[in-house]
């Protein structure tokens, strides 16, 4: 297998939406998510030399991002300890059980749904990466951001029939990519 190489020029176009969807379900704050992602890219650039080419570029970036997310939680929690009142536990003196108390109800359906949606979202993002860059950009604008056909045509300087050909091809490869796991 050829060793993976890093191409920071294409990171933003290729991976930023994937990283965003990965982050937003974990930090639940748009601004924070954006900050963490830009920090991740810069940290990646700085430690470029450490990349051994064994993992894919995206896996490597996700590994950095995970650390950033953990750091974010640490900072948040240490601030909480100083300035804010703690969550009210049932028994202030009881030690050792606080974590369990905070674990979500295992029968909480929304939590389960969110988790499944996250996996689905990342699966979609994964398949989007297999499209070529222009195709992906147009397909995303149309399908995720709900742009008008006309607006996209103007932006990319293409005709509506060009656009529909691109959309058709994109939808076909997306369906193929997702079929086995998600479209049954």
């Amino acid at each position: 297998m050829p060793k993976e190489k890093l191409n920071p020029e294409v990171w933003v176009d290729r991976y930023s939406d994937y990283l965003y969807n990965y982050t937003i379900v974990r930090v639940n704050d748009h601004e924070v998510a954006q900050d963490l992602i830009s920090e991740t890219f810069f940290a990646g650039l700085k430690s470029k030399k450490n990349f051994k080419g064994e993992a894919s570029e995206r896996t490597w970036l996700i590994a950095i991002l995970k650390r950033k997310i953990i750091d974010h939680y640490r900072k948040k929690n240490s601030k909480k300890g100083k300035a804010e009142v703690h969550i009210d536990y049932n028994d202030q003196d009881a030690e050792g059980e606080w974590l369990e108390e905070r674990v979500r109800d295992p029968f909480d359906k929304t939590a389960e749904d969110n988790m499944e949606n996250e996996e689905l979202g990342l699966a979609i993002m994964n398949c989007l990466e297999k499209l070529n860059d222009k195709q992906a950009a147009i397909f995303k604008m149309k399908t995720i951001d709900d742009f008008d056909t006309e607006a996209i045509c103007n932006e990319f300087n293409i005709t509506p029939s060009n656009l529909w050909v691109i959309i058709h091809r994109a939808r076909k490869s997306m369906a193929e990519c997702m079929e086995k796991t998600w479209l049954n």
């Binding site: 930023s16 939406d17 965003y20 969807n21 937003i24 954006q34 992602i37 949606n117 689905l120 979202g121 979609i124 993002m125 995303k140 399908t143 995720i144 951001d145 939808r171 997306m174 369906a175 997702m178 079929e179 998600w182 479209l183």
Partner: peptide
């Protein structure tokens, strides 16, 4: 049928772009 499933998957996933 496939195309409609794909549309539903996108709706359900709540994915967003930056």
């Amino acid at each position: 049928a496939r195309n409609m499933k794909l549309t539903r998957a996108f709706k359900k996933s709540n994915i967003q772009t930056l």
